[in-house]
């Protein structure tokens, strides 16, 4: 598998896939996509990178342990539901803020934060599984 071409292309391919996954994640609220699919694509990116350049390289690249990423995602998702505690509304009631960034109105919302949490959990866990299995392959 580790041909020179693959090893050269893989980082770019992975980066592209991660970028695409973020795009899929963010457009999910309106078009097909969302946290799951985005997360799965990003996890595949990690897997491909791992196969091409070795697991150690991936671990260096993401600095955090993938499981910590996953836990952070879960934490984020759960906390996004907690925001409504301060508005006197039930758990997970969505909150929307419209922020003007460079003249464009960008909607920020708790469902979005939640979806990013989903994304992180999927990336972290599935990525962790893939990396762990690849490590076993190599030893």
């Amino acid at each position: 598998m580790r041909t020179v071409i693959f090893r050269t292309i893989a980082p770019y391919l992975a980066a592209l896939m991660v970028l695409f996954s973020v795009f899929v994640l963010l457009r999910g609220h309106n078009e097909p996509g969302g946290g799951f699919i985005g997360g799965l694509i990003a996890a595949s990116a990690l897997a491909i990178y791992g196969i091409a350049c070795g697991v150690a390289a991936v671990r260096r690249a993401i600095t955090l342990h993938p499981m910590s990423l996953s836990a952070a995602g879960l934490l984020m998702a759960a906390l996004s539901g907690l925001v409504s505690l301060f508005t006197g509304q039930p758990f997970m009631t969505s909150q929307w803020w419209y922020v003007r960034l460079f003249g464009v109105e960008v909607p920020l919302s708790t469902p979005m934060i939640f979806d990013i949490g989903v994304y992180l959990v999927v990336v972290g866990s599935i990525g962790s599984i893939a990396l762990a299995l690849e490590e076993r392959e190599s030893d």
Partner: peptide, 26 residues
């Protein structure tokens, strides 16, 4: 505020399911 109804169900209407589900994944 979402046009993809399935995604809105996942993250808002029935977000609690999703919370449980990502717990499973983690």
């Amino acid at each position: 505020h979402g046009r993809n109804i399935v995604n809105v169900i996942l993250v808002d209407f029935r977000g609690f399911d999703t919370l449980g589900e990502i717990a499973v994944v983690m």
